[in-house]
Design a protein around this nucleic acid. Sequence first.
RNA 1: GGUGAUGUAGCUCAGUUGGUUAGAGCGCAGCAUUCAUAAUGCUGAGGUCGAGAGUUCAAGUCUCUCCAUCACCA
Length: 552
Amino acid sequence: MRKILVTSALPYANGSIHLGHLVEYIQTDIWCRYQRMIANEIHYVCADDTHGTPVMLMAEKENITPEKLVELVHKEHSQDFNDFNVSFDNFYSTNSIENKELSESIYKKLANNNKIEKKEIEQFYDTEKEMFLPDRYIKGECPKCGAIDQYGDSCEECGSTYNPTDLIKAYSVISGTPPVKKKTEHYFFKLSECSDFLEEWTRSGTLQLEASNKLKEWFEAGLSDWDISRDAPYFGFEIPNAPGKFFYVWLDAPIGYMASFKKLADKKNLSFSEYWEEGSQTELIHFIGKDILYFHALFWPATLSFSGFRTPSKIYAHGFLTVNGEKMSKSRGTFVTARSYLDTIKNPDYLRYYYFSKLNDSMEDIDLNLEDFIVKVNSDLVGKFINIPSRTSGFIKKYFNNIIISTEEISIQDSKQIIDDLISIKEEVISLYEARLFSKLNRLLMSYTERVNEYVNRLEPWILAKNDAEHTSMSMLHQVCSTALQSFRVLSIYYSPVMPDLTSKIAEFYGESNYQSIEAIHKNIKNISDYKHLLTRLDKVSVDSMLRKNSI
RNA sequence: GGUGAUGUAGCUCAGUUGGUUAGAGCGCAGCAUUCAUAAUGCUGAGGUCGAGAGUUCAAGUCUCUCCAUCACCA
């Protein structure tokens, strides 16, 4: 049995969860649920990422403390994840005592290992607001093309890059006043000394090929030291023995994975060190978006390694979500929050299925085409999948008192073959889940779904039913419908990590509780309940109203 | 600007190490069927595989150039 600690990236605590976030949580959740089904010990943790300037400023704007803001957002996020059936074992916060202690202790270990250095740097300062300004809080005119309201690092109009000092008529986004340069002392993590370790680590099979290609570029450019401190005022953890200096949010964010697990371990009596000590035999797997590869594949393993902890076993990066082929956009209404999806479309399994049908192990972006979404849900799930019990269970009820023939007792050659094949693809299903080749797996499962429908068409139970002799137990009619229903059950078990709500209703239909093990495919089922519609069609009206809700 | 990726039927995507007439699902057309929420099955139309050049007996698959889209640049 493998012991695996899995994480999804921490959502930032200044906004709502949206469909883009959900790609990752759904991908990770499906993978975790699959691991549970094959009886591995798995712990899935996450947390809100709470620190930094944006949260601080937002709280100020809303006239509440950052702690209060973070608490409110945490409540909202937890509810969203819960309603999308994201099965975290712990969803915590980086603003926690565990995280504070771990961050401090890791920092001290890095300092003891001579990996921390103080340097004086110059930064922009807002004299009215009395705070140092991160680059993205400085705007001005592009020095190359003169476009107004461009950020301090690059121009969105002409694409040129430059330093904030190059901006014309620079101003602070917070107060509007022109920023001035001011000296300040910062703490740096000496990442430049970690190149050898990191080059080796990134080549040790922990990354996807695309990701390590990407990293090669950074190594070639040479690694610079990493500024891990920020000046007050800042919402975060104060650096030990450095009054007025705080840990940069990206230092304590990944440590939040540890902290969340620490909390879980305390609660469930698990061994924290078994999972985190150097040389740990357990697996540590991070699911992330490709945008934060830098932090997870460079800073994070270096931080861990030079503070005496184990490093991640795998980093699984995925691409971004586009909607209707374009970047999510508030004005087009495609910046869809998790909540508005739930309010209008209701069923999380639709989205889970759609993402499942498109995800694979690469860093490519995936597109949520809303028309395709409607059509795919309706034809795959309602038209083909749910159609199987819908078209056969009536006969079982009417003529056989809801009793179906168990798999072993089915004797027609055709029928036997279908079920045997379905059982025999178990290993293939497992390996596709394991490799995160979800779209490929879906094609496999859908091809079986089609095969069952084809089979029913060919054997024509509705014709058989006209003959009274068929109304006795073990008749052809009984066999055909039983085959369809037994096959459907196996398919449902395979699909259960994807659609937990739907498949738990299906389990009920067979008089079972939720499918917790893939071995359930071998169980002998003899009874069904009366069939009730398991799924309704998705209509364009609800998708449209979802878009309207998100339009501004 | 630099770097990494992507570009295959109307839509969403498969296409192992280059090898016979390029595939699937949906959509569309026709037929069959009526058990099923007009669901299902069969048949068919539809692609010069972003453009151009090259390597090769043979390229969607390798090389180069260009175009378009996306991301990253700490």
